[in-house]
Design a protein around this nucleic acid. Structure first.
Length: 436
RNA sequence: GGCCCCGUCGUCCAGAGGCCUAGGACGCUGGGUUUUCAACCCAGAAACGCCGGUUCGAAUCCGGUCGGGGCUGCCA
């Protein structure tokens, strides 16, 4: 069994193409088949090397690898259609001389017989039948001698020995044309599978108007590879038993193209985000620390100072539990960095009061003489002081939170103070006390 | 317009004639926990598009209808 994905490098890797690639890959893996990646760059105007690289890079990021094709090589050259125009020309000439095609204003058109039908079995749609009278003669070679998609794609699928073509449903109605070419070339027919399209929240085909739908855009949003992989699998397929959190190993074990749903799915970012949060939370702590540090350094555009690394490492485990994407990271720990400390004035106004002020002053004095600045000691001091002053916990704690972290939303309070350290904590309390 | 595909909670998925007074998940609502935000726990609202037919029995089969989508290029 041999499958392929053949992206056109006319844009970054689109989430829909990523899923089509993923399903092909899964099915190949599930059946010990061969997976091939070729580049359909017959549209030389819009195709670029940069897009090609983006697509390859993001396939790899998703965990998709291939046995043959662009970037890894194989017995058929470099797997780019732009390098095979001679071959397409040759086939077009052959079809012409054998009477399957004719010239039309400098182009070559395939002559579609008007009788009979093209029948094939589709893995997800069952028996398909198209009347040939509904299929028009179509161009296979343009007047500039470049091949059309129908010709190039079909010739490649034959030459590369593809046995199962699984592609988007948008090409379903072109499949009779491809079968016609294969028959004219006396080639055996591969199996076909037309996967449903992905829609945006408005029920229309997923495209730019739904925002940036490239895989890269989601990476930039702080989406994890495992989350994206898992979520994409869920669109149109499930491993059964209401199981929905799984890795590639399980997916490979259970995947079957025949079980893919025929109806199109709407891409719902909310569920992706939920899965992403789940995978962040379940990441092994050490690994998360590595990822997190990378991400933060990228966000602040400089490496950590060692003191900062120290402080951030302390708070990371509790930050890990409360973020949804990697991009939520830096805002949560920014107060620990050697960056200008800014207090959200709106937040401060909402927690500021005389009671709060005396509370801040009181704990500051106690912090000053505290020798073991541990989480436990910080907590007991803060709770004692609440009782001493007889104020509501929330009043004292929230004021402290804003004073220490700059906002009303932060990691757990005692850990934040502990991570920040004695000196800086005392300084920040002083700073806010003066703001009365 | 023509050809084709599709149609279960808002969304994703389970369901392949009786196990369905339709199940799980996200989201949503209410509650619990709580120093914030999350996480976590509990509860709840929420769907077989419609009409016929087949059958003792239909979400599941058939027909129609309505709705959505794709293709209809010398784009892919």
């Amino acid at each position: 069994m041999k499958l392929r994905i053949a992206p056109s490098p006319t844009g970054k890797l689109h989430i829909g193409n990523a899923r089509t690639a993923l399903f092909n890959w899964l099915y190949a893996k599930a059946n010990n088949g061969t997976f091939l990646v070729r580049i359909d760059d017959t549209d030389t105007e819009r195709s670029t090397e940069a897009f090609k690289n983006d697509i390859i890079e993001n396939f790899k990021w998703l965990g998709i690898d291939w046995d043959e094709g662009v970037d890894v090589g194989g017995p058929h050259g470099d797997y780019k259609q732009s390098q095979r125009f001679d071959r397409y020309q040759e086939v077009a000439d052959q079809l012409l001389s054998e009477g399957f095609a004719y010239e039309d204003k400098g182009a070559i058109r395939f002559k579609v017989p008007q009788d009979g039908s093209i029948d094939f079995k589709d893995y997800v749609r069952g028996n398909m039948s198209f009347n040939l009278s509904d299929v028009e003669d179509f161009v296979i070679l343009r007047s500039d001698k470049s091949p059309t998609y129908h010709l190039a794609s079909t010739v490649d699928d034959i030459d590369y020995g593809i046995t199962l073509i699984a592609r988007g449903e948008d090409i379903l109605s072109s499949t009779p044309k491809h079968i016609l070419i294969m028959q004219a070339l006396n080639s055996s027919l591969p199996d076909f599978c037309h996967l449903p399209l992905l829609f945006g929240p408005d029920g229309k085909k997923l495209s730019k108007r739904h925002g940036d739908t490239s895989v890269e855009a989601f990476r930039d949003k702080g989406i994890l590879q495992v989350a994206m992989f898992n979520y994409l699998c869920l669109l149109g397929w499930s491993p059964g038993n209401d199981l929905e959190k799984f890795d590639s190993e399980l997916a490979i074990q259970k995947f079957d193209l025949n079980n893919v749903l025929p109806n199109s799915a709407i891409f719902d970012e909310k569920k992706l985000l939920w899965l992403n949060g789940f995978y962040i939370r379940t990441t092994e702590q050490k690994e998360f620390e590595k990822t997190a540090i990378n991400q933060i350094e990228k966000d602040i555009n400089r490496p950590f100072f060692s003191d900062e690394l120290n402080r951030v490492s302390k708070i990371l485990p509790s930050v890990q539990e409360r973020i949804e994407t990697l991009n939520d990271l830096t805002p949560q720990i920014i107060f620990l960095l050697d960056e200008p400390f800014v207090i959200n004035s709106e937040d401060w106004d909402s927690v500021n009061s005389e009671e709060a002020q005396s509370y801040l002053e009181s704990i500051r004095e106690k912090f000053k003489v505290l020798t073991d600045f541990s989480i436990e000691n910080i907590e007991s001091i803060m709770r004692e002081t609440i009782k001493e002053l007889d104020i509501k916990t929330k009043i004292g704690f929230q004021a402290t939170r804003v004073a220490i972290t700059g906002t009303k939303i932060s990691p757990p309070l005692f850990e934040s103070i502990y991570s920040l350290g004695k000196e800086t904590s005392i300084a920040r309390l002083a700073e806010t006390i003066e703001k009365l």
